[in-house]
Design a protein around this nucleic acid. Structure first.
Lengths: 213, 213
DNA sequence: TAACAATTACGTATTTATACCTTTTAGATT
DNA sequence: AATCTAAAAGGTATAAATACGTAATTGTTA
């Protein structure tokens, strides 16, 4: 018996190419095609595929929402996401939604075959290129996240101590400053960062990687 | 001319095995061995290797600090990290330090060869197993990070609003509660979490993934 | 039914944080 | 020489958060 693969992508030509590839495989067959998320969810109930190869960027309903809804109804469905470079923002959301694999659209045939075989055996398959892209974007993030931090060194130092849970008085003591000085710094920090209060400042500091966690 | 590879690991036998593998390659030669981070940094100045294969867990100085210091002096040095499963916490720190590759210690020979060839050409090489492990740990993180959070739903809801920068009064208004009720909740939250104040609570909430960022 | 936890709420007091002000000094930039 | 910013510090006032009590619901569980 062959594993049934459904193809979901808004470009017909791409689906046809993928179909031809899959039809050369002895253990897989194409179980239907859809061109957007809504059509896919409808077809899903009729065709009951084992695997879905799902594009991220589609009209009507994007791949993330489609994957999420499909997996609610069919938790055992194996979804392989198809993506292009530059869609890093969606990786985590898709992984979080529960997809079993990730392929770049310019993957070669061997990689598609490998991905299909891996997921039917219960494994996960993530395109190496895509993963390395992801890791690199994480690596580059810290430096480009703070392009022009308007905060002075002293201000950053005080933010650090605030995040440690210290009060203004404690910070003043530990830095051998007047409490009023630390007050001034705090006021300037809130002004510069546009934060309303301590809570939002801490969130800001962590987002901007001003503090290690 | 051969590329010079330095081996850094606290297990002599492992180094010897790696050395034998590398000596079978026509474009690479071993340029020295070190058993910890301090020894490595000393040897680095004499031997000037092109590539370093660096263990994470070592006595004296761990791989992260060693990599950081080595790259300050020699920014063009290609460092390939050697790690075992279960060292996920260090991946990001190593990537952040600027290493060019990641290999699992039980990688096969072909993978080691591929990693060496990739990094000398200026690329990055990350072991697929390791990357998938990382992605999976990210995927599983949200559910297993809060095993026995002592916080009630209402308390979590209030933490969320605190992290949004809202004051007690604003939270009360938005939830249609008395300010005093929110006061009580905040007091209970600090008690349960052991936090001293709002700042440390926000850090706690983000660490425990009670809030999305 | 009794015990427990969650949610709601109030009183009182103190401590912290924030809002607007001003000022001095030192160092960097124009 | 004039200008600008960071860093330090103070006055005054209000707003917000924390500390330490108490207590009435409600629902669940033992």
């Amino acid at each position: 018996m062959k594993y049934r693969v459904m193809l979901v992508d808004d470009h017909k030509l791409f689906r046809k190419g993928l179909r031809m590839l899959i039809e050369t495989l002895s253990h897989f067959e194409v179980a239907g095609e859809a061109s957007d998320g809504v059509e896919f969810l409808h077809l899903l109930n009729q065709n009951k595929p084992d695997i879905v190869m799902l594009d991220i960027a589609m009209p009507e309903m994007d791949g993330i929402e489609a994957a999420r809804q499909a997996l609610v109804k069919y938790p055992d469905l194996k979804i392989i996401t198809l993506s292009m470079f530059g869609e890093q923002d969606y990786y985590f959301k898709m992984v979080d939604a529960g997809v079993k694999g990730f392929l770049l659209k310019n993957s070669d045939f061997a990689e598609v075959k490998m991905a299909l075989e891996t997921v039917v055996e219960g494994g996960n398959y993530f395109s190496r290129e895509l993963l390395m892209n992801l890791v690199n974007s994480l690596k580059n993030a810290p430096e480009e996240m703070t392009p022009d931090s308007p905060l002075s060194d002293r201000e950053k130092e005080i933010i650090l101590l605030i995040c440690k849970g210290m009060s203004t008085q404690e910070i003043a003591d530990s830095l051998c400053l007047s409490k009023r000085t630390v007050d001034s710094h705090r006021a300037n920090i809130l002004l510069k960062t546009g934060c309303r209060n301590t809570a939002s400042l801490v969130v800001y500091a962590i987002k901007e990687k001003l503090v290690e966690m």
